[in-house]
């Protein structure tokens, strides 16, 4: 039982990270109907930004408090990733809006290849390990919960609350939802669609960067190829929850995290990614609209 709960906690931590990345996928898919393949690499970019900020902080201010360091890492990573995603959308995706539908997908794959190789070229191909930032571990009823895990779950909860507020309660969120429903009509009603889409990319990237920071803190290492597998898993999460649905993305993320840690714990760690991918395939085949998504009706 203790072992099971332990795995539950691990899964929840992992799931929080996936959930935060998944939101970026789901929002972009919802608003312009494209799989932003480069989103996983934005997450990796965020991780690298956090890494470099961490190195700057430790080399300039030796005794900086951990909380402050994490906060600065997170904020700089968010800003950098947001700027990258904003630029990418403007340069690579916007010119293709409304054209041939495969073109943006190919551009996004191209961007993904370019981003990971850009980091490889500028930062080198090797693993980047950092000393552990926080190492306290608490024992709660025989289950060891690390401070890292608490931070990750707490940060996710706080950010998702803020995010939920923005999407549901502000004019910006309203514009976003309207654009998602019907882009043309939204434009006719005076919504700046281009700006709304830009903001969507910025928000998605910021969350991915936080996820990247948390990932770096949790595993203590980041490498230029880190965008792909977490990216695909987060996309799986978005699809599992029902693509286009924000609570769905979070729920999907948590589920994927849980499945992955439970599968590794009870079955085989080698095949954990196979499990994730199989779930993706099974969900899409039997319930393409996901858990919380609206089914797509085929009009004859």
């Amino acid at each position: 039982m203790q072992y099971f709960v332990q795995q539950l906690v691990n899964g929840l931590t992992l799931g929080s990270i996936y959930g935060m990345i998944a939101i970026g996928y789901t929002m972009v898919y919802g608003i312009i109907g494209m799989i932003n393949f480069a989103h996983g690499d934005i997450f990796m970019l965020g991780g690298f930004a956090a890494l470099i900020v961490f190195l700057v902080l430790t080399s300039l201010f030796a005794g900086v408090p951990v909380v402050l360091a994490l906060l600065v890492m997170m904020i700089v990573a968010m800003l950098t990733a947001a700027l990258w995603n904003w630029t990418i959308e403007k340069v690579a995706y916007r010119p293709l809006r409304g054209s041939f539908r495969l073109a943006p997908l190919i551009t996004a794959i191209g961007m993904s290849i370019a981003l990971s190789n850009f980091i490889q070229v500028t930062q080198g191909p090797r693993n980047k390990p950092i000393p552990p930032l926080v190492s306290s571990v608490y024992d709660v009823f025989g289950i060891s919960i690390s401070l890292k895990q608490i931070i990750i779950i707490a940060v996710t909860a706080i950010l998702l609350t803020i995010f939920w507020y923005i999407v549901n309660k502000t004019p910006l969120g309203r514009a976003q939802r309207a654009t998602e429903q019907d882009r043309k009509m939204a434009a006719l009603l005076g919504i700046d669609v281009d700006r709304t889409i830009s903001v969507t990319f910025i928000m998605g990237a910021a969350l991915a960067a936080v996820a990247g920071t948390m990932y770096l803190m949790y595993y203590g290492v980041v490498v230029f190829t880190d965008g792909f597998i977490p990216g695909v898993k987060a996309f799986t999460a978005a699809v599992l929850g029902g693509i286009g649905s924000l609570p769905g993305a979070v729920l999907g993320g948590l589920l994927i995290g849980l499945i992955e840690s439970l599968w590794s714990a009870y079955f085989s760690i080698d095949y954990k990614d196979v499990a994730t991918f199989s779930i993706l395939a099974i969900v899409l085949i039997f319930k393409p609209s996901g858990i919380l998504g609206r089914p797509e009706v085929e009009k004859v």
Binding site: A92, S112, A114
Partner: peptide
């Protein structure tokens, strides 16, 4: 060689933006 895939990725983007079809 290190720049091979970087250039490949960028070329994918450039060609698509230039000729979406």
């Amino acid at each position: 060689e290190l720049y091979r895939m970087l250039i490949f990725g960028l070329a994918m983007v450039v060609v698509m933006v230039w000729k979406p079809r």
